[in-house]
């Protein structure tokens, strides 16, 4: 699975995550876009939960960052895409972070594996030197 390789994107909405209230803003952006794109209710909840998780990770682990949500098209298929980016401490061991039950933040530690299950595609940029970039997509 690769990084962002979309042919077209639209309705991009960026939310700066600096405070906890921004998590709610990111959730709202995700809910509006997924509804607009025509996702059914359960999928909308999955998307919103995943975005909430990613935005909260930024707030808890990195302190500041950005969540961007957008509609992307790959080979005629439309999908919801979320990109969560921060310049925080980064994820030292990606495989470990994706293991069930692993956490360094004192939470359930289900965050990232959970996001992976909630969405159809999930990708952590392994090359990144500073901070973290996570891309997740769910197809219509």
């Amino acid at each position: 699975m690769g990084g962002p390789d979309f042919k077209m994107k639209k309705n991009e909405h960026r939310v700066e995550v600096l405070a906890e209230a921004d998590v709610a803003k990111a959730i709202y952006a995700a809910q509006s876009l997924s509804q607009e794109m025509g996702f059914e209710k359960t999928a909308r909840f999955m998307i919103a939960t995943a975005v909430s998780e990613l935005a909260r990770n930024i707030f808890v682990y990195a302190g500041a960052g950005e969540v961007a949500v957008q509609a992307v098209e790959v080979d005629g298929k439309w999908g919801f895409e979320v990109i969560a980016e921060d310049a925080g401490p980064g994820i030292k061991d990606i495989a470990l972070a994706l293991k069930e039950g692993y956490s360094t933040g004192g939470t359930l530690g289900l965050g990232l594996p959970g996001v992976k299950r909630l969405m159809d595609e999930f990708y952590i940029d392994p090359e990144r030197q500073i901070g973290t970039m996570i891309v997740a997509r769910k197809w219509l």
């Binding site: 359960t42 909840f45 999955m46 919103a48 939960t49 998780e53 069930e100 359930l108 959970g114 299950r117």
Partner: peptide, 13 residues
């Protein structure tokens, strides 16, 4: 709610 239950299960709660 049902939709929330779906998301919670995927989350692994």
């Amino acid at each position: 709610r049902p939709a929330l239950a779906g998301a919670l299960t995927d989350l692994g709660i």
